[in-house]
Write a protein that binds this DNA or RNA. Sequence first.
DNA 1: ACCTACCTGAGAAGAAATTTTCATCCTCCT
DNA 2: AGGAGGATGAAAATTTCTTCTCAGGTAGGT
Lengths: 125, 125
Amino acid sequence: MERSTRQRRAIREVFLETDRPLSPQEVLELARRKVPSLGLATVYRNLKNLQEEGFLVPVALPGEPPRYERAGQAHHHHFLCRVCGRVYELLGCDLTLAHLPPGFQAEAHEVTVYGRCPGCYSQAG
Amino acid sequence: MERSTRQRRAIREVFLETDRPLSPQEVLELARRKVPSLGLATVYRNLKNLQEEGFLVPVALPGEPPRYERAGQAHHHHFLCRVCGRVYELLGCDLTLAHLPPGFQAEAHEVTVYGRCPGCYSQAG
DNA sequence: ACCTACCTGAGAAGAAATTTTCATCCTCCT
DNA sequence: AGGAGGATGAAAATTTCTTCTCAGGTAGGT
């Protein structure tokens, strides 16, 4: 039977309190504010559990290790800040797939926007 | 001084003869048709050289190791076949970034379309 | 409160992609 | 043709991310 531990609750809470996809490292750092002894292996174990129970889904971005976000959200895409590496959610999607060559069958798509987030707006680079 | 070797020529030719981004493994397989003794380390070394001299650029796709394509092409995006794993180029781009929240500054974007390529169209799955 | 099974933390191990090492090969200048 | 130094191939080493191992901790039914 699945138990409710401090660690598991802390990890779940982090996702309820954060509106952007998180990497395992980010989850570790945020959840350690609640449970300082938390280990990375426990983060990975619970990320897997939370996916299996349908609470989280993985978010793959080009050239990046996966992040995780809450499942069940409306169709949306992501913004990757080139300065701080954080990923944000972008609402809506105005992509139309008019240019598919003959014989190609589209099943899904991903849009990733790169740039600077508000917190990194004024930094050099 | 940089030498012209059979291996380097073979790798460069593969990209001139192929109109889609290639992974290091794909480059190895295609270039071995020209130089059967070719090793993977040489592929990696030459992919790096060809990037430095501006002939190739890396193509990052969500959850995938990088592919490489010829530099200098017009703005375009990519199609990843979920059956065979090959990546194709999609001409044009009708993405408009109307939904960026305040304070976010876009510098670039990537669109990846997933589906089936013509060769994998009729397979089950 | 007890006890059992599940959970945790730390480090070792594993997996996958890429780079390095090194002995040998080969291009290209003379 | 000869020779010097860059290039190659195979295997080992690295890097990065993730999973496993295992001894000890703890939730939750009784």
